[in-house]
Design a protein around this nucleic acid. Structure first.
Lengths: 331, 331
DNA sequence: CTGAAAGCGCTTACAG
DNA sequence: CTGAAAGCGCTTACAG
């Protein structure tokens, strides 16, 4: 592997000049520039990112802390974030937190010494005081922190989020307009900041309509099985409902499976609305009515933010992406 | 941030000693050891991985090249690989290739200078001569290359794979035993090494039974829409079939949607078998008969391999994981 | 068992 | 506009 020194020697210039040409970090005469570039091409030389990182005290790597790649929503988000950052010349270090606060803490402890360019926090669960204070400390040490999906601007962390509360207000109002009086909610509420916001929208719409029933609120996690179990339990308990708002599409699918297994027609007897519009919903039968999500826009906003952060300090601004109701057969 | 030199000074030893204690790379007297460890704890000192990497000429980072995280199969694989490598103390750099050879080549060009500890190639598509020769060159430069999912042992790359051909031989034999005479195949064949193997199993079983029909072979990619389109086209062309083997669960789901939309009963009129057993299949209705996949075992084998590679050269061995037929309602 | 010193491959004041 | 030199934070022959 050729080093920068090799290039300098062969081009008959100093290593400083080679560095300046390659980084565009200072004006270099056209003549010198050309000499350097020629040799660089000849040797197929590439700057060693580790040496750069050590010298500059910062890598060109961003860590993505993701709630749970096992959930399609996070997988799609990861895909878009990786693509957007790659196009900005940033490499992505992946950490799957898996709804486990300890893993988050473990990572945060190691983060300072890794000299990351940034950390993208894509977590839906509530974050402990411990973890947030670590995050704030990291931000102060010069690492760009960005929250994706959860509003952390109260900790001065720039955040890119989707509307959550407004989205369920809209979908539940839609169900109400359809004539439903007993609408249930299944999703992660206490544990999840994002899920809580979704629930709050549901609740607000129902309270306003005088149709909120605490027994129809089922605080479960995000996977298929949870949706199925919640519905089965409710049915066994003799609870009656004709509408169901789920906190995710996976939950909705699980719920639909349970309803079908009990010979309850969807949407004729129970209308179901998912959340997130993961690819699958359009191919389920009945196809799933759901609420849209725009991971590609979030990823795009993220890469813009990192581009800006290269030249200026980023204020802890909040970007909010709109969602819309995607009406399909199940609702 | 405290440096190793700070620790050495405060402990009254040389930096070499601190390094030896922290790396366990040479025998150090208990007395010195203790002094060092005490100061390390006091200062909360951590070794700087970038400095280590520069000095040693190798990072502790592995790049995962993944076919398409948008497909659940790859998302699950990514999740398990990340967890398994993290437990081995390895950080994961993620690159989503997205079935795009150019992106693969771009990465490979940058890989040498990144001084990676290894590269995990988790691609189902055929890999060009260009890319494989790059891969081989990287292996020779001391980067541990491992293939996940595709057998690359012919290029001396250790590979961890699942059975593909045998799996579809088994599932198609099952459909034949059920009395099906016209069994279709939908999946990526020409483009995908893994998909081709699946197809070959299907073909072998049918040829043996004298029931192979070329017009029932539909070479499509891996997503929901492809499965739907393939079936719709076949139906429009007046093709008749009572069984369908899909190359993935997503394809199978898309196919089932198309069948239902044309009022064809699954499995009564057409039995469908998916491939990969992604979580969703159990919650679809009818639930999806499919072929199992074991990403957690693959990830485990992978981390073992990296552990071994730390001390010895890894032969280009082949690990093959078994699959089994998961019978559910659709088949 | 321990330390002094070189060096991994860059970037960046500093001086001219 | 250009170069000599220091230094980022470690590890590892080498010598004792």
């Amino acid at each position: 592997m050729a080093t920068l020194i090799d290039v300098a020697r062969k081009a008959g210039v100093s290593s400083a000049t080679v560095s300046r040409v390659l980084n565009g970090t200072a004006v270099v005469s056209a003549e010198m520039s050309e000499k350097v570039l020629t040799v660089v091409k000849e040797l197929g030389f590439q700057l060693n990112p580790m040496a750069q990182g050590l010298r500059k005290g910062q890598t060109n790597t961003v860590a993505l802390l993701v709630g749970d790649i096992g959930q399609t929503h996070f997988a799609e988000l990861t895909m878009h974030v990786q693509a957007a950052l790659e196009s900005t010349g940033i490499d992505l270090l992946l950490f799957n937190i898996g709804h486990n606060e300890d893993r988050l803490l473990d990572f945060l402890k190691r983060a300072v010494v890794m000299r990351l360019r940034g950390i993208v926090v894509a977590l839906s669960d509530n974050i402990s005081k411990d973890a947030t204070s670590q995050l704030v400390a990291l931000a102060e040490s010069g690492i760009q922190i960005v929250s994706l999906g959860q509003n952390l601007t109260r900790h001065k962390i720039p955040s890119i989020v989707h509307e959550e509360r407004a989205a369920t207000v809209r979908s539940v109002s839609y169900l109400l307009k359809l004539g439903h009086k007993r609408i249930a909610y299944v999703g992660s509420i206490k544990r999840s900041a994002v899920g809580n916001a979704r629930f709050l929208g549901y609740k607000a719409a129902l309270v306003k309509a005088g149709a909120f029933h605490q027994e129809l609120v089922w605080d479960f996690s995000y996977r298929y099985a949870a949706g199925q179990n919640a519905v089965l339990r409710a049915l066994d308990a003799g609870l009656r409902f004709t509408g169901l708002q789920a906190g995710s599409d996976e939950l909705a699918m699980g719920a639909v499976a349970a309803l079908k297994d009990r010979s309850i027609a969807v949407p004729d007897e129970v209308a179901v609305v998912g959340f997130g519009d993961i690819g699958m919903g359009a191919y389920a039968r009945p196809s799933l009515t759901t609420i849209s999500s725009h991971p590609e826009l979030a990823a795009q906003a993220l890469s813009q933010l990192f581009k800006r952060a290269a030249t200026e300090a980023i204020p802890p601004s909040l970007t909010t992406l709109q969602r819309s109701l995607v009406c399909r057969e199940s609702g």
